[in-house]
Design a protein around this nucleic acid. Structure first.
Lengths: 354, 354
DNA sequence: TTGAAAGCGCTAACAA
DNA sequence: TTGTTAGCGCTTTCAA
């Protein structure tokens, strides 16, 4: 009976408040708050009564009201600077995984590379008092630090380079990836390796190349400049590169490509020239972009940047900062080798890096 | 001088409140609220003084506090059911465009197809009292309506089919897309057309096929079953379909493919058989997945579903519902033809549908 | 073991 | 033209 108290007098559409529950259970709001948050010393019957009332009224505590008093908002901002590029999506997924586990909601902010839009989004995030912000996006060129107007909000960069030394920043270990590719090629018995990759000036290109060279060097092998071709990140460039390799009479038994798209162009071009892959020339790609890698004939052995794992780590790091921990350190996260058929040999261990 | 009042006694990290601004400007909080919200009758000097104080203190009104009293939260939930699939991304972008313009923030909720996760996210959204929810995701099979626990929250489905007649739902006009493709082929002088498409039972396959057939029928042309091949959404299937077409000695001058991936497989297979595209056989794809369509040789003429426009419309419809307008009606939004080289002929008008 | 009441930061109705 | 004050829904002392 007493549980019904106040049920009839309420407007039908107004959301149930803690007050309603208190009335229905015949206790005070303070008591309701305590049972709902598991605090205080209460009689079991009281707890039960309150819980029953809350259930009956489908009570759902207003998060904004809770946030007003509490210290944390359980909300973070996700600022992504490229129009949800192919790479930021898997990163976002990883971030969401980490956040979901901590029951934190995320505001999605796409700046589409527009500084004005970025400013607006950040304003809005700060006005909403988010507990932290993760910045994702293009990493070919370093971006200026996110302007948080001096606010001391935890901030981390995931798959996005910043031109600020102290900003915590998570990136894939491209050099390690290049090394993995090189080592795999060497293990497969290849020794005359060419490298067909993207724009010379991008960091990823330089690092992947350095990794490959290091792998070869460790076996005393050299990588003559004539076998290193920089171009664009396209299939078309893969085709052209093969033509150039042929024109300059390179005698090679393997090609490490800077991306799966390039690799696909390379493999197609090789096949059209009657060169057997991997028998005559082995090919390794980069990105593990499944839709490309698996449709290539033969399917591409390639390097995976483990972007979801990177995103997840960024989420965890941010959570640590929010909890008051020390600022996490910038670092490179491992890539892993994905073995398919374009390189011959057997499938090996495929660490997923997560 | 008076503007400085209270500046020193405040803890350094506590965010500035309206109270601080009021003290600094030597007015009451009510007055500050009025100038900040452009209300009431105030002396210009007062306004100026308040604004100066607000600026000086870098005052940023707490959105959660505003929401507590106000009617609207200016936040919506984005529930996407597939792990940020290739199709939901462009839809999300369109949604964000519409929302940004209305200065509304969006909570990103990825359910990864997990009902438990979906339930949790919806709970959280309701607890945060979002003004509305947009559901995005797989549309191959209709999904059950989002369970909002009876809450009267505005809700719309974008690129996601629901098995509920009255749920507002926005989808691309696949049949119209199929018709566009058929008409384009006919205009190019093709009359013996084959159709290589995805899984027979999916709605998109049936609709696109129906559109093609309608276009042919309008010219008195028939589409014999032997020229309609259903399979999977892969490049490999495109290859195989070409082999089957050849094996059954079909005499055709065009192929309309259910997706760009299939089209790419078809074009590659054709080229490998020495068939010239588009001279001997014209090919039209579907999706306008640029990375595929432009890398195909020749680049694919294809159908674009205008997903960003669809997302934007979903956002606008939701806003209308939030404003209290009538529930928007479910509908199909137009596709458009993107002319490249795989079909021969000149580039025609390319309505972008936005 | 429970209740009362003072905030949290802001808006809006009402006074002055 | 401006100030006062009562909420908004919840948490958290402090009393009882």
């Amino acid at each position: 009976m007493s549980i019904e108290r106040g049920l009839t007098s309420r407007a039908l559409t107004r959301p149930t408040t803690i007050r309603d529950v208190a009335d229905a259970a015949g206790v005070s709001v303070g008591t309701v708050s305590k049972v709902l948050n598991g605090g205080g010393q209460l009689r079991d019957e009281t707890r039960a009564a309150v819980q029953r009332a809350a259930q009956a009224l489908r009570f759902r505590p207003n998060e904004m009201a809770r946030s007003l008093s509490g210290q944390r908002r359980f909300t973070v901002g996700l600022v992504s600077t490229d129009r949800h590029g192919r790479f930021s999506i898997p990163v976002l997924e990883g971030i969401e995984d980490a956040l979901d586990a901590a029951r934190i909601s995320a505001f999605l902010c796409n700046t589409a590379g527009d500084p004005a839009r970025e400013r607006e989004h950040v304003r809005s995030l700060l006005a909403r008092r988010v507990d932290g912000i993760i910045v994702t996006g293009q990493r070919s060129h370093p971006r200026p630090p996110l302007d948080v107007d001096g606010e001391p909000v935890p901030l981390i960069y995931a798959f996005s380079r910043v031109d600020s030394a102290d900003a915590p920043c998570l990136l894939p270990d491209d050099e390690g990836g290049g090394r993995l590719a090189g080592e795999h090629l060497l293990r497969s018995g290849r020794v005359r390796i060419a490298h067909v990759t993207g724009p010379e000036r991008t960091e990823a290109v330089r690092h992947r190349f350095a990794g490959l060279r290091a792998a070869l060097a460790s076996q005393g092998l050299d990588l003559p400049p004539s076998r290193v071709l920089t171009g664009s990140w396209s299939e078309a460039w893969g085709h052209e590169a093969v033509a150039r390799l042929a024109a300059t009479h390179q005698s090679i038994d393997a090609i490490f490509c800077g991306s799966d798209q390039i690799a696909r162009g390379v493999v197609d071009a090789l096949r059209e020239r009657g060169v057997r892959v991997p028998d005559e020339i082995a090919v390794v790609g980069f990105d593990n972009w499944e839709i490309i890698a698996t449709a290539t004939r033969p399917p591409l052995t390639t390097i995976d940047m483990n972007l979801p794992a990177l995103g997840k780590q960024a989420g965890l790091d941010l959570l640590a900062m929010i909890e008051g921990g020390p600022s996490p350190v910038s670092r490179r996260l491992p890539c892993s080798l994905i073995v398919r058929a374009s390189c011959g040999g057997h499938a090996e261990g495929q660490p997923d890096g997560s």
